[in-house]
């Protein structure tokens, strides 16, 4: 029998752990998710500073007060900044290179992340006007998966002054 003490240090010990959690989106985020289910972007306005958040988590992060007023936002927005993804990674479902952009929806005061398609990656630019392309009505769910991507809508680029504070 081998002497255990000569086998060297144990370097690996597998202790598998799995935990399941319920997710509680809350009142405000539920409004946003229910909006997506209907093919529209719902934001909420801060009663103190007037900013419109999308999605709102229920509070204005600046003022710490509840955002109570629902605001229906446009399907159209402006690319405030972007990056072009050229690196393949595990679980990637989109062909590279692709464009990941921050889109400021008309009427909102925060941008959110979106995929930009129907344009060669080297033609994306700040200020580009884009519109959301939704999945078919029968496939709409209370999830961002309802938005397939954004694409250029052909409008003239937005003036830098209109989005410079949202970079």
């Amino acid at each position: 029998m081998a002497d255990e003490t000569t086998a060297g240090p144990v370097t690996t010990l597998a202790t598998p752990i799995r935990l399941d959690f319920d997710f509680t989106p809350g009142v405000a985020q539920s409004r946003f998710l229910r909006g997506l289910e209907q093919g529209k972007f719902m934001g909420q306005r801060c009663p103190s500073c007037g900013k419109v958040y999308v999605p709102s988590r229920g509070s204005c992060p600046t003022d710490g007060v509840p955002t109570t007023e629902d605001v229906l936002l446009s399907n159209v927005g402006t690319v405030t900044t972007y990056c072009v993804v050229n690196v393949p990674f595990a679980g990637q479902s989109i062909e590279i290179p692709y464009i990941c952009a921050q889109v400021l929806l008309d009427g909102a005061n925060v941008s959110f992340m979106g995929l930009i398609q129907e344009i060669p990656a080297d033609q994306i630019r700040m200020g580009m006007r884009v519109e959301a392309v939704w999945v078919d009505e029968s496939e709409l769910t209370p999830s961002l998966a309802s938005v397939r991507y954004f694409r250029p809508n052909g409008e003239t680029d937005a003036d830098y002054e209109t989005y410079k504070e949202y970079l």
């Binding site: 809350g26 985020q29 229920g58 509070s59």
Partner: peptide
């Protein structure tokens, strides 16, 4: 189980009350 509100929504009234009790703000 509070399955209506997220963590922020659950906290906000508590923060408002703890400040409001003594008339202060953040």
């Amino acid at each position: 189980k509070d399955d209506e509100r997220n963590e922020v929504e659950g906290l906000m009234p508590v923060i408002a009350e703890v400040f409001g009790n003594i008339g202060i703000t953040k």
